[in-house]
Amino acid sequence: MQGIRAAIVDLDGTMVDTLGDFDAALNAMLKDLGRPTVSRADIEHMVGKGSAHLIRSALLHGGLSSDGAAALQPEAWTRYQAHYLAINGQHSAVYPGVVEGLSALRARGLPLACLTNKPLSFARPLLQAKGLDGFFAHVFGGDSFERTKPDPLPLLKTCDALGTAPAQTLMVGDSQNDGLAARAAGCPVVLVTYGYNHGDPIAEAPHDRLIGSLSELA
């Protein structure tokens, strides 16, 4: 933590286990469309790259062609958004150690930002529902910037908002998207060993440190 002046924290799989929310909303959407449902294990491999990617992956998993999935995507998004907003946070839980870790970062005087590939209209209510919104000076979603993680742009823009140089801004996440974005942006990065990493070993993702709980940042 030496030299760190601010921190950027991912949401899904890092602070909140939202797999249950994804399960409920995604399968309700698929049922509306008459498409086959997907298992939690499959969803776990699909999440992390934004809602558009999640929906497309679920449609393709159900046997649709690429063109068929693309044609159905607008209606699927409308239905998914409605279902997700209706249940947002009801099937999710804050991971152990998150409040302690965020409190420790704040106690160091570090300004915090939440940066997620989740749409901002989903992210803000979830943080509020879980009592985490008060920790963050800024919240940015997958639709806040022109590109999403693993592109470095969202991290660079978030550093600008925090007023800190990338080299002084810690990225805390759970996936290769976070690691790759941090490396490209020039941010040090800590990854948690739980969460969602598309089924790949988290140790293979770019990182400076692996932790089992955000409380280890204290």
Score class of each variant (00 low, 15 high):
residue 148 T to Y: 00
residue 131 G to D: 12
residue 78 T to G: 07
residue 127 L to W: 13
residue 151 D to N: 14
residue 61 H to F: 11
residue 173 G to R: 01
residue 74 P to C: 12
residue 174 D to H: 01
residue 146 E to I: 07
residue 175 S to V: 06
residue 116 T to F: 01
residue 180 L to W: 06
residue 130 K to Q: 15
residue 151 D to I: 01
residue 171 M to F: 12
residue 184 A to I: 02
residue 173 G to E: 02
residue 96 P to F: 10
residue 96 P to C: 10
residue 76 A to I: 03
residue 137 A to N: 13
residue 193 T to V: 08
residue 89 G to H: 10
residue 194 Y to G: 02
residue 132 L to D: 03
residue 123 A to W: 01
residue 111 P to N: 09
residue 116 T to V: 09
residue 69 A to V: 11
residue 152 P to R: 09
residue 179 G to N: 01
residue 183 R to I: 03
residue 145 F to P: 00
residue 176 Q to F: 07
residue 146 E to A: 15
residue 74 P to I: 10
residue 104 A to Q: 08
residue 109 G to E: 10
residue 184 A to K: 07
residue 168 Q to E: 15
residue 157 K to P: 04
residue 89 G to Q: 09
residue 97 G to Q: 10
residue 184 A to S: 13
residue 170 L to C: 07
residue 197 N to P: 09
residue 154 P to K: 05
residue 85 L to N: 12
residue 198 H to S: 13
residue 204 E to F: 08
residue 175 S to T: 09
residue 125 P to S: 05
residue 140 F to H: 14
residue 204 E to L: 13
residue 64 L to C: 11
residue 113 A to V: 05
residue 72 L to N: 04
residue 110 L to K: 10
residue 155 L to G: 00
residue 159 C to N: 01
residue 175 S to F: 05
residue 185 A to P: 03
residue 192 V to K: 02
residue 63 G to K: 12
residue 161 A to Y: 08
residue 134 G to I: 06
residue 202 I to E: 00
residue 175 S to C: 10
residue 202 I to N: 00
residue 72 L to C: 09
residue 109 G to A: 09
residue 79 R to M: 11
residue 96 P to K: 12
residue 72 L to P: 01
residue 91 H to T: 05
residue 67 D to Q: 15
residue 144 S to V: 08
residue 189 V to S: 02
residue 59 L to S: 03
residue 174 D to P: 01
residue 103 S to Q: 14
residue 162 L to E: 02
residue 103 S to A: 14
residue 170 L to W: 04
residue 82 A to M: 10
residue 92 S to T: 04
residue 58 A to L: 02
residue 91 H to N: 13
residue 107 A to S: 14
residue 173 G to I: 01
residue 145 F to Y: 15
residue 65 S to T: 15
residue 74 P to F: 11
residue 196 Y to P: 00
residue 125 P to Y: 04
residue 143 D to E: 12
residue 162 L to M: 10
residue 182 A to R: 00
